[in-house]
Every structure is written in C-alpha cells, then in structure tokens.
Design a protein around this nucleic acid. Structure first.
Lengths: 203, 203
DNA sequence: GATTGATTTGACCATTCGGTCAAACCGACG
DNA sequence: CGTCGGTTTGACCGAATGGTCAAATCAATC
C-alpha cells in the first residue's frame, strides 16, 4: 500500500468495490448520514478491511468527488465554438440529461454536497468550474453578438441547463410521485429541447 | 405542556426559537448531519430544555416540514384559471423565485429531504402535492387546447419552474462561485421571464 | 513447501449523540 | 410569605460511530 509498491489485482478490485458502494451510500444519505459500516457491508468487506484501503471515511468521499468532477464537467468541455450554435447547445443539453438518467447517484452526490454549502469542494467551484464556465460563456456571448442565437444571459443559460437536467436525477422521487408511472425522461427530453429551441432561435 | 393546558408566553417564544434554530441547522447540514446540541445552542437553550418542548429531534424536523409544505405550495395554489394564461404563469414564476430569494433555508430543507429519497414526506408528495399539480396541470392543458399558450407538456412545465427557481436557493454557493460578485437574482429574474415568455407565447 | 509481504479480522477504544431524570429554580397568585 | 405549576439544568445512560491494533490468514514467489 505504499506509494512505491505495485497495485495488485486485489487492491484494484477492492478499491473499485469500495468506491462503488460508497457512491451508493453517500448519494442516498449524504456524507454525515452514511456510516463506514454501511459502506463496508455494501462493498462486501469488514470495516477494518475497508479502512485498510482508505485511511478514513472522508478520504473515500474525497476520492469520489475528485473522480466525479471530471465526469461531471465533461459534457460542457465538449461544447465546440465551431459548428451551429443552437445545435451545439442542444447537444450539450442532451448529454447533460443523459447524465442525469445514467448517473443519478453521481448527480445526487453533488447535490448533497452543494446544498450543504459545498464545504469540501468550494475551491474547485470557484477555480476549475468557474474558469470553464467563463470560457464557454465567452463563446456563447460571441454567438449572441454575431446574431446566431437570441440574446440571453449566458451564465444563467448555463445555470438553467444544469438545473433543468439535474432536477430529474436529484428530485427523482418527487417527479415520479407526481407523474405516476409515466417515464420522466421521455417527456423531459422533448420538453427541454422545445424550450431551448424557442428560447435561443433568433427572432 | 398537556393538551388542555394553555400555551404560555414562554412556550410560544421558546417553540419559535427552536423551530427557527432548527431551520438553520437542518437546512445547512441535513437531518442526520444536524445535532440536537447544535439546535439547542442556536436556540439559546440547553439540550434537556429543548427536549422539554419537543419530544425528539425527529419531532422538530417533522414540525418544520409540516409547517413548510403549506408555505411551499402556496404560490402554485394561487394560480388562477381565469385571467391571462401567460401572465398567470409568469406571476407564478415570479412568486416562486421570490421564495428562493426570501426563504432559501426552507428551500434547502426540502432539497435535503427530497434528494435523499424523501423518507419522511413521501406520502405528502404522492398525496397533496400530486393532487394539486394534477389540478393545475388540467388548467394549463385547458389553456393549451384553447390555443392561448403554446403546446408544452404541462407537468414538465411545472417541473421546469420548480427546478429553475429553486436552483438559486439550493445551489446558491455554486451559482455565486461562478458569478462572482454579481447578484444572482437580478439576472435570474430577467432570464427566466424571457425564457417562459418565448416558450409559452403561441406561435 | 517454506518464506514473506499483502490482506483480513475480532476485539477494542474514545467520542459523539439522542434522550432521561431527579432535583433545582422561577414566577404568578393567593 | 408560601405554594404550586411551569421551566431549567447538571449528571447521567446506552447505543452508534469512526477509527486502531495485534494477531491470524492468504497468496505469490523462490
């Protein structure tokens, strides 16, 4: 387990099991609400064995958040400044909604963290995240100045995409309680596509 | 403290202090993350004294959620089926955004609860909430059939209003980290109004 | 199959937390 | 002043929790 020692097959398997189990438990109960025993049980390990691979509960949480930030920002990173602006933005929205459908636990892990003030990732928010958003908003502003999409506040446009798409992961129980048996993502994708088409198509 | 005894001045003051403090602590740390000592300290009481007014931590939480559901659904309740459809919906959006600005703790209390599967209010969601939404969606569907607003999925329209407005309370730290010093609600109200005007104005 | 390092575990510890209780305190009212 | 119901508190309890450790077990290599 020292830095110089090779990573064995068992280490890889168990680390993966732990992170998988921790994602389950942290996303469902929050950091404080999750217990090490719960995570160990879900990972099929004893508590001391789990703590042989990660030094503390917080270390597991940090590892999850770190590995997650890349995944979470990937869709925005792929927004290209060439190509048709509306199509680029709609493609971004689609990718983001797919993330909510395919990675709801990751979405809720973030939601838990940010709702409670992002104590553990505040630096990443005002650092990497802000930088990426600034960059992409500059691109959007360029499109607006060229008259290729309607004039809207680029930052709030990004926020709206985040909130609309993540809502279906983070507030899943509420959405399903109201919709009944209807598949949320079916209707959501059509609705959201219509919304941004009407919002962004130049007058 | 029995049911028949009158509610004294001290009781009213302390109960209010406790609920106020509990709203602070629960919204910032979630149910599991909050401690009775924290709440008691914030309320200016000792822990046993606090437990003299509420039988348990969960009882405080329940009292908060119960009293909150009414406040939270009030804006939707006031959506009238007479009057101009677009103006009615825009007024609802405005009221909802004002709630996020003026009651961010309440919003986060709900967010915490729902993100973690709404274990304590699931019945209210598929009961009162669903009923109210069904009712209002019927009104919106009526407006659509009459051609007075554009054709959109009414349920997802409601969801979009919830997510867009509550985002500014629930994800406040993230929004502020990205925006810097700019006031979020300033830009948000203009953006969201534009969004729904363009979405809902008949073609 | 013996050795050696990696892995696993049961027992244990200190702290935190929700909650209890008997005793003390306080204030209104006769 | 005395009394009595309502209020407050210090001391305490049991359970849960994050984490430790020495000893046992396992697996790869010689």
């Amino acid at each position: 387990m020292t830095a110089s020692s090779p990573t064995t097959r068992i280490q890889m398997r168990n680390r993966a099991s732990i992170l998988e189990a921790a994602l389950d438990v942290f996303s469902a109960h929050g950091f404080r609400g999750a217990t090490v025993d719960q995570i160990a049980l879900a990972a099929g390990l004893s508590k001391p064995n789990l703590l042989y691979y990660f030094p503390s509960k917080e270390a597991i949480h940090n590892a999850l958040l770190e590995q997650l930030l890349d995944l979470w920002l990937a869709p925005l990173r792929t927004l290209r400044d060439d190509g048709d602006p509306l199509q680029e933005l709609l493609a971004y929205v689609r990718r983001k909604l797919e993330m909510s459908r395919d990675y709801p636990r990751e979405s809720r892990l973030f939601a838990n963290e940010i709702v409670q003030g992002a104590p553990r990732i505040h630096d990443a928010l005002s650092g990497d995240l802000k930088q990426l958003v600034d960059e992409k908003c500059a691109v959007i502003s360029g499109w607006i100045e060229e008259g290729r999409i309607a004039r809207v506040h680029p930052y709030h446009l990004i926020f709206s995409i985040w909130s609309l798409t993540q809502h279906y992961a983070d507030f899943d129980v509420q959405v399903r309680a109201v919709l009944g048996t209807e598949d949320p993502f079916e209707g959501a994708s059509g609705f959201i596509e219509t919304l941004y088409t009407r919002l962004l198509t130049p007058a």
